[in-house]
Design a protein around this nucleic acid. Structure first.
Lengths: 344, 344
DNA sequence: ACCTTTTCATAAAAGGTTTTATGCGATAGC
DNA sequence: GCTATCGCATAAAACCTTTTATGAAAAGGT
């Protein structure tokens, strides 16, 4: 008595029902622990299902339940990669990896969707249960579109143009920035320059705000440069040349948002004969390969991409389960003190 | 006359049909360019669909067509990340980014599935149209399972235990390895040591084979060390200490498979007072942040993860479309000559 | 005028699951 | 002995789309 399978491929619920001598309803109930089946029947169905290696067809189930079991991830940094520059490489993979594993732990898949605002995106992109949007910019289009469509969405870092939206995960940028600045001041800095990126996202906005407030509080001069994230080390080099030019008002400390800019600043400073940390203190607002491997190491905030990715997925799942909005989730950053601020 | 939508959320094909005064069949045909509808009807339907912002429900469509529109990606390096060590970070993100974008260009999504052999993976993982498996090890379990299930799959690098399986994409490791070794010999190397990883994948296997054959051909001594990939720079340091110990038989060149090992070797060599490239030539079989940023830069093979990711997705799509197996696709590597082999 | 194409549109089936409503037989209550 | 309750199982509807088969009307040919 060979087991009849409806089609070549996989066993369907109907096959299990036939084999177990019950109705499909009973199979479904037994498998999902839903109905009122006797213990004997339940066990028999389970055994047959196991034997046939039955797995509910994900799309049939999804169609019926209205849930895909897949989360979407749209990381703005990934868009920036478009040309595949190794920008944010470090952060991205740690984040995406943690997010994927966390989703997996909840029985969900994680789908990469490069850019939701691009035309002609795959229909599957509309089929996910919810979205994680990484580092939205002010009045982010992808975010707006999803919210309009009523899709549950969580962002990493808030949208600066959307103060009401609180379903986000990220570091307390104002506080963390202060921490680093305080460290520099403690190490003797009196003229701290600040190099931000040009992306109009919360991370840049809040850090700059924190810097200005901090300088004001301590009656220290304010010097802000904005350098495109994508310029990387070269951008940092240029900025350093600019800042270290006039010996008169030369800063004795530089705080860069990105690790790559910081690495460029370090290289250029060394090239110009400005010793770090003796003549110049240096720190970065995000950790990266470049800050870890530079000589001396560059003091940096580790934004804990793994924790952040995990928290983002967890928050999204909570939203999907209809739990009330729990406001923003702050992931504390870790401050790695390295040689660039005088650590041994 | 407010438009009736069957439910709160999105418009269904039925809504479009009602609004356009035709049957659902006609709508489907018009939208997919299938049936025999008059030009006038077709245009009217299209206009209504546009107005209602109608999009076919991905799961309903998938259920009917037997296609999800999603590809799965199971990168073994990502598994290794488990603890989220920045191993293969560089390669992974460039690969995954390119793969995602290529899939997107074909109207497909890309789903990250950390480890297919783990128990309790999400059902959605079974719902994808095909899989890309990155760097399978010998007799890879994930690969075996998918092939058994009849799922179309493409690997990056062949499974060393599966010579018959030709649906893979990757570099010609034997040839590329020779290229680097030839360069070192041309720069004067006479005793080249080889540091491989411990993963039993084609990349390690073929490179070591190429090294042994090359050394034999040139009557040069053979010295092979195997260091776990996950040990990174520290592993490289240890290996270097071992190799550079006895001044008697000390190698005058070291070839490392991974960039991180090479970076560790460089650091340790410098620590031991062995000047690179004067006393020791150094090269790596894969490019990474570490090889680019080291001082001096480390000569390395760029395995072109973007090209590889693109090629892998394209090959998978060809398979999905029933095109005959086109054998392995070789992606040529690029050799970056840097200071560690005497480039200026 | 009749038969044959051709054109255009539709009804219905299929895809696999979950859920709601229904039914049947047996036990319990009075 | 009649009815209410309960336990167990199932039929059928629903989810939304695509595809196959069918049919009506119009056009064309003799």
């Amino acid at each position: 008595m060979p087991e009849q399978r409806s089609r070549a491929g996989r066993a369907t619920i109907r096959d299990v029902a036939r084999e177990a001598g019950v109705s499909v309803t009973t199979v479904s109930h037994a498998l999902n622990g839903k109905g009122t089946a006797s213990e004997a029947t339940r066990r028999r169905v389970l055994a047959v299902a196991e034997r046939l290696a039955y797995r509910a067809h994900p799309m049939a189930r999804g169609l019926r339940r209205g849930r895909t079991g897949v989360l979407g991830l749209d990381m703005r940094p990934l868009d920036a990669i478009g040309s595949y520059l190794p920008v944010g490489v470090d952060y991205f993979v740690r984040f995406a990896g943690a997010a994927a594993v966390t989703a997996l732990d909840h029985g969900l898949g994680l789908m990469l969707v490069p850019d939701l605002t691009r035309p002609g995106i795959p229909t599957s992109a509309h089929g996910v249960d919810g979205y994680v949007i990484g580092d939205p910019v002010r009045d982010d289009q992808a975010l707006a579109r999803l919210l309009d469509a009523g899709v549950p969405v969580v962002t990493v870092g808030r949208d600066p143009g959307r103060p009401d939206f609180t379903d986000w995960v990220g570091s307390d940028d104002v506080h963390e920035t202060q921490r680093v600045l305080d460290l520099m001041r403690q190490r003797g800095a009196e003229r701290v320059a600040f190099i931000a990126g040009t992306d109009d996202n919360a991370w840049n906005v809040d850090a700059e705000r924190a810097y200005r407030a901090w300088a004001g509080r301590h009656h220290l001069p304010v010097r802000v440069l904005r350098v495109p994230e994508a310029t990387g080390e070269d951008g940092g080099r240029d900025a350093a040349r600019q800042l270290l030019d006039g010996p008169k008002t030369r800063p004795d400390a530089i705080y860069c948002q990105t690790g790559r800019h910081a690495a460029g600043v370090l290289a250029e400073a060394q090239h110009l004969g400005v010793a770090v940390p003796r003549d110049l203190l240096l720190a970065a607002g995000s950790d990266a390969q470049q800050t870890r491997l530079a000589t001396p190491g560059i003091t940096a905030l580790d934004l804990e991409p793994e924790e952040t990715g995990k928290a983002a997925v967890q928050l999204l799942i909570a939203r999907l389960n209809g739990e009330p909005a729990t406001g923003p989730v702050y992931v504390p950053a870790r401050l790695h003190e390295r040689g660039s601020t005088g650590a041994r």
